[in-house]
């Protein structure tokens, strides 16, 4: 039986790496993938607490997290495609349509 803190450290590390990716990369596709990775870390965290805490609610919410992340990826990618169709660019710092 693996102690719970190891899972927590792993999921925190994955989450932080995803956060670094979101903050540093300029390509929107990579940013969306990093968001997926952060949700993945949350998934590990929820399941580890659920199994070690003796309560199944964490796994149920992990299923909800998976479905919401799939919906998020689909909507985000289609917004990205529409943006690319108009501007021919996927650089996040060139997006300044709503900047005043």
């Amino acid at each position: 039986m693996i102690p719970l803190p190891l899972y927590l450290i792993l999921s925190a590390a994955l989450f932080i790496i995803g956060l670094v990716g979101v903050l540093t990369r300029r390509n929107i596709v990579i940013i969306l993938m990093c968001i997926e990775m952060m949700l993945n870390a949350v998934l590990i965290n929820l399941t580890a607490f659920s199994v070690n805490g003796g309560n199944l609610s964490g796994q149920i919410f992990a299923i909800f997290v998976i479905s919401i992340s799939a919906a998020e990826a689909a909507v985000g990618l289609s917004i990205l495609l529409v943006y690319y169709r108009q501007h021919r660019s996927v650089k996040v710092d060139e997006m300044n349509l709503m900047k005043w």
């Binding site: 927590l8 450290i9 925190a12 590390a13 932080i16 199994v51 070690n52 003796g54």
Partner: peptide
């Protein structure tokens, strides 16, 4: 810095969850 903070806050919590009995 955030990683260190999360580790310091979260990892000590992990010791309270060790029962597998109910599941």
């Amino acid at each position: 810095i955030l990683f260190v903070l999360v580790g310091l806050l979260l990892v000590p919590q992990g010791r309270y969850y060790t029962s597998e009995g109910m599941i």
